[in-house]
């Protein structure tokens, strides 16, 4: 998420900077990766995801809560059509 924010990647906003409070960093994890990435990392992430602007799917995550490690090198995520109204 921070990589996207600092480099102006469109489609991911992350306005709270990873504070688990804005839900503007919503992404869909590619089917090939969902097992490795896992679901929401906390009840708070799951609750906040409910407020995301675009459709929430089983593979939805708030990208600021995905800790990037070597294990996830090559990760593919897709971005929703909007992060807020």
């Amino acid at each position: 998420m921070r990589g996207a924010l600092y480099n102006g990647v469109e489609g991911i906003i992350g306005e709270c900077g990873g504070g688990l409070s804005c839900a503007t960093c919503h992404c869909y994890v590619d089917a090939a990766w969902t097992a490795r990435v896992g679901g929401p990392s906390s009840p708070a992430e799951r609750e906040l995801l409910d407020g995301a602007a675009a459709e929430v799917r089983p593979e939805s995550r708030l990208s600021c809560q995905i800790a990037m490690t070597a294990h996830l090198d090559g990760l593919v995520v897709r971005l929703p059509e909007k992060q807020y109204d």
Binding site: E15, C16, G17, L20, E47, G51
Partner: peptide, 19 residues
């Protein structure tokens, strides 16, 4: 349930010192 609070505002100017 966790929801966007506005103590630190939202949008581009979301508080830089919030964390």
């Amino acid at each position: 349930p966790r929801k966007t609070i506005l103590a630190f505002t939202v949008g581009a100017h979301s508080c830089m010192g919030a964390h």
